[in-house]
Design a protein around this nucleic acid. Sequence first.
DNA 1: TTTATATAAGACCAATAAGGTCTCATTTGT
DNA 2: ACAAATGAGACCTTATTGGTCTTATATAAA
Lengths: 153, 153
Amino acid sequence: MRLTRAGEYAVRCVLYLSAKGKGTLIGRKEIAEHCDIPDKFLAKIAQQLARVKLIEISQGARGGYVLKREPRDISLLEVVEAIIGEIALNDCVTSSAVCRASGNCAVNRVWIKVRNQLRDTLAGVSFAELLTEDSCFLAPVSVPLDFRGKPKR
Amino acid sequence: MRLTRAGEYAVRCVLYLSAKGKGTLIGRKEIAEHCDIPDKFLAKIAQQLARVKLIEISQGARGGYVLKREPRDISLLEVVEAIIGEIALNDCVTSSAVCRASGNCAVNRVWIKVRNQLRDTLAGVSFAELLTEDSCFLAPVSVPLDFRGKPKR
DNA sequence: TTTATATAAGACCAATAAGGTCTCATTTGT
DNA sequence: ACAAATGAGACCTTATTGGTCTTATATAAA
């Protein structure tokens, strides 16, 4: 696994929307500009976020994106996996096609362990938490105090 | 980071050499065949392992590879990083070029944390340990009892 | 109801990295 | 000297990433 550019952008986008608060409609261009994401590329990424119900997209004039859940209930893991799929650090873990011994392999067991560890840690970080610290924004954004807390899952 | 095919092959190779024991000369073809690694590709990988002194290569007729350290002192991390370089899960962690806020970014701090966690876990697994369980071999290999234990680092 | 402003969906393209091969040189045992 | 092995790096092919473009559709406002 690797946090691809698309994944990185998705995190920035959700972080920006989180700062604005759940339910606030924000135009795509504003996000793109503010978070330094190529406009059209963001459109593609947003569709994936919408598919997993993290955001809602409204079309037409004055359209844009709306965060559908509270930042404290959104984990880093969710956003990342919405874009790059379920995290796997190697092929063996997901498919036994590569390694004939797979399924009963000591090396594989280690990879499964570190993968779970990684996922657990990412699952434990909410966007509300991320907002309480300086983040990857290009310009400062005001952060409402009530968007702080731990994720439910 | 992702365990590439090359990294996977390197692990298999060192595991095979570990089973044979430190100091035992094994021909490249034997390893390639036994571990299901493309012969020429193994040559390339072996050079990287030699560069970090994990193995020694002898040329000429009856040449091959020799494990230079005890399996209990070789960690999974070492072998993996010998091939794919120091593990980094995203660009931000390594270079601040991508993310302008880098260095003081909450998201980045999370990635650094999970990366360290991952490296620590891999560093804690020795090849001796891996040998005590069924591994990614295509055919069974006898495992000397004295190659079992924890890695020094 | 027309027009301007947005996004939708997916085809498409360029750049990079992964996976692997090939060639020519060098080394070493016999 | 010769055969059997590896060294080093150029080179090729394929997959993935990162991103754009085009056509269609939706909506607010004039």
